[in-house]
Amino acid sequence: MEQTRGAGQDGGWFPYWTRRFVVFAVLWWVLAEGRFDAWWLGLVGVALATWGSMRLLPAGRHGVSLAPTLRFLAFFVWNSLRGGVQVAAMALRPRPDLAPALIEIDLSHLPPGTARVLMLNTLGLMPGTLGVRLEESRLRLHVLDARLPVVAEARELEAHIARLFGGRP
């Protein structure tokens, strides 16, 4: 079996699938709001979810390490907060005073696929930017106010995502 060869490599003392099994089990516990009356159904669901996840995303190719993930999450939460506050202030001030523009940025530093899609979707929640079109490595953005330093902020986000996927920043 091609897919099971990599299992166990990455998991230290435990086979790799046990980690996902634990994650899905916690998820079931959360969804059932801590009740255990239907634990057998949960067990079936957790087993199926683990099996499906190992089939769809085999171990090894996408190891995301903890520290960059936490840094990315902190950056994301802080900036989506800023984005929400900024757009709320623009909406409520007497004259919205927007200076919208379309800009294009180059994403060729990020690997194609998940990393670029994550970048696109995260930018939609950052201050002042909204993804309009992603084609190969060109990303077209709509910006609410071209006078704000949106490109610099997009580059900062790109560096976070590059670290997340193990590339150079």
């Binding site: 989506s80 929400g84 900024q86 757009v87 709320a88 909406a91 929640l125 201050p127």
Partner: peptide
């Protein structure tokens, strides 16, 4: 406006 403010 919708994406950012409503998500917050």
């Amino acid at each position: 406006a919708l994406a950012k403010a409503d998500n917050l």
